[in-house]
Nucleic acid binder design. Sequence first.
RNA 1: GGAGGCGUGGUGUAGAGGCCUAACAUACUGCCCUGUCACGGCAGAGAUCGCGGGUUCGAAUCCCGUCGCCUCCGCCA
Length: 571
Amino acid sequence: MIFIDLRDRSGIVQVVCDPQVSPAAFAAAEGVRSEYVLAVRGTVKERPPAQVNPNLPTGRVEVHAAEVRVLSPAKTPPFYIQDDLDVSEDLRLRYRYLDLRRPIMQKGLILRHRVAKAVRDYFDAHGFLEIETPFLTRSTPEGARDYLVPSRVSPGKFYALPQSPQLFKQLLQVAGFEKYFQIVRCFRDEDLRADRQPEFTQIDVEMSFVTREDVLELMEGLVAHVFRETLGIEIPRPFPRITWREAMEKYGSDKPDLRFGLEMVDLSDLLRNSEFKVFSGTIAAGGVVKALRAPGCGGFSRKELSELEEVAKTYKAKGLAWLALPPAEGGEVRGPVAKFLRPDELGAIRERMGAAPGDLILFVADQWEVACTALGQVRLELGRRLGLIPAALPERPTAADFKLVWVVDFPLLEYDPEEERWVAVHHPFTSPHPEDVAKVMDPSFPRERLGEIRANAYDLVLNGVELGGGSIRIHQRPLQERMFELLGFTPEEARAKFGFLLEAFEYGTPPHGGIAFGLDRWVMLLAGRPTIRDVIAFPKTARATDLMVDAPSEVTEEQLRELSIRVEARE
RNA sequence: GGAGGCGUGGUGUAGAGGCCUAACAUACUGCCCUGUCACGGCAGAGAUCGCGGGUUCGAAUCCCGUCGCCUCCGCCA
């Protein structure tokens, strides 16, 4: 009697080879090893009650083999084909076709397909057209580093792979395709992360004659549709909204994780005249003091506190001050800051923080954005330590496992000290907030205050991950010219870089706007995986290499000659 | 560009100056086992400890360099 676990995309079934039923099938099965490809003919039978395997979805039945044929033998795989795999990722990437045999990997790609299908169905039902745009296109300034492709017929010239179809989708609006979408590959030559690959897939959307409200409402419908069709989850609508400013103030991030509270509080007004110069001095210099209450954490050890401080320092904070409240009334308040604070200050802080005995209060004093960001990262670390951020998605996720939020009113511009100029936070075609257009057009508006101007832009954030973002675009020539001016482009430069778009805009441009979602990230979150590599069939390593096909690779002298390219040896 | 972690039979780990002629689990090969499903039993094969240099009487172990993978900062309109 030989038992074979026979696997296909749908799962595993047990094949029973009984020499009394079929001597030939038994003999064939004797030579079968792991991962052999088989053709089995037989009868599906219910198992005897004692032989039922409750751990297997098909555990109530089995196939009694009449015939077993080996279609293809297999070498012993370098790792087990099973879900709970403890093997280095480089090995999985080198043998990706084996890694992808694992049910959990198949589940991820099947989910990915179903998300894409749901997206296409939704847009089709709402009158959108999927239109393809070029991969071989033109390098444009701003944004990420381009992947370049040399041209053979135009020696010395290069195509760029698109960072996104941004310009094309706007040109499609000029062309009259007033509802466009595309599931499209994008390319960015920047350093990688767990949620960043050099090529990734975007759900790209653009619409004419819409306001921000129209876009957000339609996209909430999309998100709800995808959750319903893939996980069977009903996401409550409308999604909450938060301004960028408020997100930074309360959560210290432009992609706040709303699965837990631990909101930050500003104490600058209370500590303006504090004896503690780190606080008062920072405030006098235009900075702020932000604080975070960690409930019941007053007993944290030196080690835990210094680990939290390391987090803060990673994000440019100079330090992390703390106050540990005694577990009962009357005890000593501990912490390096305690002796510098007057009783009235201490009382005011406790009241504002809503602090209870046994709580820990953490402080960062710094310039506003640094203080918010650093303490916001401490907040996330605390969330992990206190178990407020689930380590994994439950077996049957519900709407409560997915906290969606729109972040709106991003700044339009931010100062880049390296380039010594203002750069677009979103991109140069993003329209200012309707209430701020006057400031943009006002030539006397002080340059140093350009950072106050809000954009008509929005991001969708899911569990602290940026799922997508978009904006209402500029469709008026004077406003666009003014934007280029603020970005430091002369009219000639603007024309040289974006001339085709500016020219197109002269032929009647509908007001338009759109959004783009990161498909990989979305599927990653729906599947509860820790990296987008797990939901991409053939991903690249952190150094942007493909370990399976060994790319990038050297090419022949002949190929280089055809492209008029000479490679200089680099150390 | 920077910081950290990891690298020892196919795989996952242990070993932290001499106990290493490198251990354990699993996978693999052969034999036994006619209801197994984390099967079981017996036997066997399989590693110059990522690579290069150095220190030492002696290095998987200490030092320097280098390569690869992962995470994070910078970067990513």
